[in-house]
Design a protein around this nucleic acid. Structure first.
Ligand SMILES: [Zn+2]
Ligand SMILES: [Zn+2]
Ligand SMILES: [Zn+2]
Ligand SMILES: [Zn+2]
Lengths: 153, 153
DNA sequence: ATAAACCTTAGAGTTTAATCCAAGGTCAAG
DNA sequence: CTTGACCTTGGATTAAACTCTAAGGTTTAT
C-alpha cells in the first residue's frame, strides 16, 4: 500500500497529478486510511503504469480513459476497437506532423533569405515576405479537398 | 473602409476573431462610425494579412505581436532580431516535430502487431504492450540531458 | 414601421494537463 | 505537546486562440 506521495515519488510525478487523474476518472485508490488518506495497492500502481505508457505514445487523457475502459473488460471487447483507437490517434499525429513540417519548411526558407546582421531591418527579407505574399518563400499549404465526412478531427 | 463583418468575410475569419485580435493588441480599426461600429481601412487590412501569413508559418499570436512591433519600427530594428524570432520558432517547431515523430513510430508499431479483428481483445498485443513495458514496441524516448539554462520552452 | 441582419459590450466557456493555493486535519519524532 | 512533513478539500490559475452568450443599439430593405 502506497500513500499518494509515495506512489507519486515512485513514478516521478506530483501528488497533485494523481488527484487530478482521480478527479478525471482515470485512477482511484482502492482504499482510504481511517483518516481519509488515499491508499494505492499494486493493481493501482499497474494501472498508473498503463496510463503513463499510453501517455508516452501520444494518447490524451481522454483517449486513455477509453483504452482503460476496454482494458478492464478485455474479454468482451474486440481487438478492432483497440486498433481503431491507435489508428485514429496515428492519423491525428500524422496530420499535426504534416502541419509542423509545413511550418518548418517555411521557417527555414525565411531564415535562409535573411542576413541576420545588425543592420536596419528596413529591407529585411523576412518582413518583406510576410508583408507581400511571396509564395516561393512561404510554402503554400496543399489544398486537399476534404469531403466533410462523419469522422471527427 | 470595411465594417468588421466585411473585413472578416474578406479573409474568411469570424468577426469575433477580429475583436479578439483587437483586445490582444494585434489589430485595431483605424476609426469608428458615429454609432461606434469599427471601421478598418486598407492599412488595417494589410496588417491583418501580415498577421494571417505569420500565423500560417507557425507563429503564435504573441510571436506575431513581437514581429509587428519590429515591423512598425523597421528602420530602427535589426535584421538579427527578426531572424532570431524565426530561428527560435524553428527550434520549437523542430522539437515538437521530434516528439510527434516518436509518437508516430510507437503508434505504428502498436498498430502493426494487432490483428484488428472482431475477436476478444483478451490477448490484444496493443493492450499487452501497454500493460508490460515492451520496449521494442513502445519506442524509448531519447534521454537528452538538457542543462536547465535560461531559455524558456 | 418593422423585420432581418448587423453591430456594441463585458464576460463566460472551450480544450488539455496539470499546478498552485488556502485552511485545516494527521502522524511520527523528540 | 509541539514541530514539521504529509495529507484532505474545493476552487483558482496557467497557456492558446478563439467561440459564444446576453442584452441591447443600428442599418437596410420592404
Ligand atoms: Zn538583413
Ligand atoms: Zn532580415
Ligand atoms: Zn487481435
Ligand atoms: Zn489487438
Amino acid at each position: 500500500m502506497y500513500r499518494i506521495g509515495e506512489l507519486a515519488a515512485l513514478y516521478d510525478i506530483k501528488a497533485d497529478t494523481l488527484r487530478f487523474y482521480e478527479k478525471h476518472g482515470l485512477l482511484s485508490p482502492s482504499s482510504r486510511s481511517d483518516s481519509g488518506y488515499r491508499l494505492y495497492n499494486q493493481d493501482d500502481s499497474e494501472r498508473l503504469k498503463f496510463i503513463l505508457r499510453a501517455k508516452a505514445v501520444g494518447f490524451s487523457l481522454n483517449d486513455i480513459a477509453d483504452l482503460l475502459s476496454i482494458e478492464v473488460d478485455k474479454s468482451n471487447r474486440a481487438c478492432a476497437e483497440v486498433k481503431g483507437l491507435v489508428d485514429t490517434k496515428l492519423e491525428q499525429v500524422e496530420a499535426k506532423l504534416a502541419e509542423l513540417q509545413h511550418f518548418a519548411t517555411s521557417l527555414k526558407s525565411l531564415s535562409n533569405t535573411c542576413c541576420g546582421g545588425p543592420d536596419s531591418a528596413e529591407h529585411c527579407s523576412i518582413l518583406e515576405a510576410l508583408e507581400s505574399s511571396e509564395q516561393h518563400i512561404i510554402a503554400k499549404k496543399e489544398q486537399h479537398h476534404f469531403s466533410h465526412s462523419g469522422h471527427k478531427d
